[in-house]
């Protein structure tokens, strides 16, 4: 018994097309964690457990993504609830990508100040989140075209912040700006 094939693409091409975002997300997750971790010898002693959490959450986020993509492809009749089903529901119990993001930022913060390194981490984390979203929703990269100016502006602001950090701006001013921005984020995240 075979599932009805989707119109247009052949099954093999559809599988490859769905595997590309998963592969890209995996590579970016590895890059994010590795970039935040190195060099470990300069890091605070508390960085090791945070690294373990980041690695675990990265893998769980990728597994969750793969499980969701697999589940959307298999609607086979008379499927018995199995260990795979249980694992899939367990994977959906926690937001692993969000936990990984927090862990990676904490890992970066446990290293000595290195503004350009942190800015590059921000770019990779953002790329990971965008690819994760594309893979999760099955959307094409073209859907991000309207937000490209915003991403460019954000990256420019990040570069400015790196300059400010390099020029040793006042810590109090940074704290004030950051707190104001946090309030803005909270307002934006209020329910629709």
């Amino acid at each position: 018994m075979s599932a009805p094939a989707s119109q247009g693409a052949t099954p093999a091409r559809a599988v490859i097309a769905s595997a590309v975002p998963l592969l890209a997300a995996t590579v970016l997750a590895i890059c994010v964690v590795a970039w935040a971790a190195v060099p470990m010898r300069d890091a605070h002693p508390g960085a090791r457990p945070v690294l373990v959490v980041a690695v675990a959450c990265a893998w769980l986020a990728i597994l969750r993504l793969g499980a969701a993509m697999f589940a959307s492809r298999s609607g086979v009749a008379f499927r018995e609830p199995s260990l795979a089903e249980w694992t899939r529901s367990a994977l959906h119990a926690f937001p692993w990508a969000e936990i990984m993001t927090v862990a990676v930022l904490a890992l970066e913060a446990l290293h000595p100040s290195r503004p350009w390194h942190t800015a590059a981490l921000g770019v990779v984390v953002l790329a990971f989140l965008l690819v994760l979203h594309l893979a999760e929703s099955g959307a094409r990269p073209a859907v991000l075209r309207p937000v490209l100016p915003l991403i460019a502006a954000g990256l420019a602001l990040a570069a400015l912040s790196v300059l400010a950090a390099t020029l040793s701006a006042s810590g109090g001013l940074v704290a004030l700006i950051a707190a104001s921005a946090a309030v803005a984020v909270a307002v934006l995240a209020l329910p629709v």
Binding site: T118, V125, G154, A159, L160, A164, A175, V185
Partner: peptide, 17 residues
């Protein structure tokens, strides 16, 4: 941490929201 680069790291996400 009073490190400006972290505020900059938040900027793209903030603008996207």
């Amino acid at each position: 941490t009073r490190r400006a680069e972290f505020a900059g790291l938040a900027a793209p996400a903030l603008l996207l929201l």
